[in-house]
Nucleic acid binder design. Sequence first.
DNA 1: AGTTAAAATCGAAACGTTTCACTCGATATC
DNA 2: GATATCGAGTGAAACGTTTCGATTTTAACT
Lengths: 326, 326
Amino acid sequence: MVSIKDIASKAGVSVSTVSYALNGSHKVSEETAARIFKIAEEIHYVPHAAARSLKKRQSNIIGVFLTDFSGHFYGDLLQGVKEGLNRKGYDLIVCSGMQSHRLIPERMIDGAIVLDETFSDDELLKYANQGHKLVVLDRELDHPNINQVLLDNKAGAAMAMDYLLEQGHDKLYVVSGPVGSYDAKQRLHAVKQAIERNPRLEFIEINGDFGKSSGEAAGKRIADEYDRTAAVFCLNDEMAVGLYHYIRHHTSLVVGEHIHLIGFDNIEVSEYIQPRLATIDYSMRKWGAFASEQLLKLISGQPVEHERVYVTLIKGESVKPVQGNA
Amino acid sequence: MVSIKDIASKAGVSVSTVSYALNGSHKVSEETAARIFKIAEEIHYVPHAAARSLKKRQSNIIGVFLTDFSGHFYGDLLQGVKEGLNRKGYDLIVCSGMQSHRLIPERMIDGAIVLDETFSDDELLKYANQGHKLVVLDRELDHPNINQVLLDNKAGAAMAMDYLLEQGHDKLYVVSGPVGSYDAKQRLHAVKQAIERNPRLEFIEINGDFGKSSGEAAGKRIADEYDRTAAVFCLNDEMAVGLYHYIRHHTSLVVGEHIHLIGFDNIEVSEYIQPRLATIDYSMRKWGAFASEQLLKLISGQPVEHERVYVTLIKGESVKPVQGNA
DNA sequence: AGTTAAAATCGAAACGTTTCACTCGATATC
DNA sequence: GATATCGAGTGAAACGTTTCGATTTTAACT
């Protein structure tokens, strides 16, 4: 492997001079620098990342950790992160799975953005205590080395509820999310608050797990016990799509007439189904951009405050006013 | 930072002994090893990845390079890669964007799986010449350090064509893919071969780019010039979905009656649209698994031969037999 | 007890960089 | 003319490991 040493001997200077030159230090004369660059080029020199990060104690790489790779869901988020990072000379890698957690303590990356249930709070706090910088997207953690960028789940869920109630609905199903999920918990909490303020509402909670098939199951149950117009709030779009699919293909009920459906996340398909799924929208890209911005600040020791990603309601024909109920 | 040295001094042994112990060498006695492990645990020792890979000349990380992160498309592929890798003690990172190319020559990773148009053939050959091991999924490259795992695009496209022709169609649109894409080229080539064997066919080619909106545009054009039942082969599902969407929402034509539609890839939505989209299916997971398997062989110097991922036809109600044409 | 083999441990070099502290000569300052 | 200043360059240590070859300890035979 060609190293800085080879350049040094070919150029008749010391290694340190080569290093300075390559790093653009003004300590070396124009002409020597030029000669060094030329030789480096010629012999196809490429710095050795490991050697460099060993010495410099940083890798200029930051890692994004995801629960799994399954998602049409996170493309935009990663895009947002990447843009923020690249501008500052950092590179992004995406990791998933328990095994990859090691990249943090082994100091392969300079910081991490975590949206990954496979990390426990304790594990993250441990890393933070060791001095690693983290931005979490799926929990609240109070530590000087951790910052959080959270979705305004509560506001979103409240909007969804208001929308449903404004349309005059008085029978409401909520399809919940997985127990471990912060987002699910927050959304559900806001739902329950709205319920309390509207005691006349008939309210049924169905357990879901954010997966499409749990939406289908919920659809089956709702159809089976159907007696009158019902509103359904699926705590994410994925389940809403599953529910929609079940209702449409296995029952004679119609969404937007008998079943009024709203989701959360505004995933791509939501726009494509018919009638258009009402949902809560937010900018994934912005979420990612905030996260990388915060992480960079954390790394450079600048003061940070928690950011929040705001959400908006998207109306859709999957929700219509109640009319002449049975 | 706590290092092997700290352990050594606390245990009253030399660094080398610690290193041997930690790496499970039989050269060190049971009891010393136990003592060392205990201390390591106590002081929260974690090996330093950079130092280790500097010395060992390998990182045990392999990289998958993707053109962008936009895809609901590659989740399963990554899953397949990951499973194959983890079993062998390798970790997977996912990278995208020109900037991240550097990870290869800088020896941050032990090998790469490439499905990424932002690499030129020349660039990849250069890396291969420098000794880096690569598996390419989106081109054919002949080099001892490169292996390829390709989709059987030609067979797939031929199946799609046969299916359409069997149903009696005699007017055919093809919506092509981006010029740079190997898959698109292969598929188109097979289409043209089928055309040649069926000269009586009315054949129109529309340029697409594998994006949904180009499918919509194709849908518009087809609807505008509609005169009789037409079959449409979109070279990927994404475009087929866009086309379907346009036809459904902006015309009075119906898919499966006036327009008979088939795609390629069997993405998730394809199953969800109504009527079910006919398409060509293959196992993304298997594709990924092959790729990692081949790469590992390449790295360990075992002989490899090119693998191929086979495809199957999925029938759907988006294609029906022609009946009493105008 | 003396020799030898095996087992356990150690010292030091090496991996490829960066960077601190230093030298050497030349130019400028008084 | 002595001294300070500056520019260009150098040597060597350090980052945290692994690993080769050497050395010491222990046990096993005569």
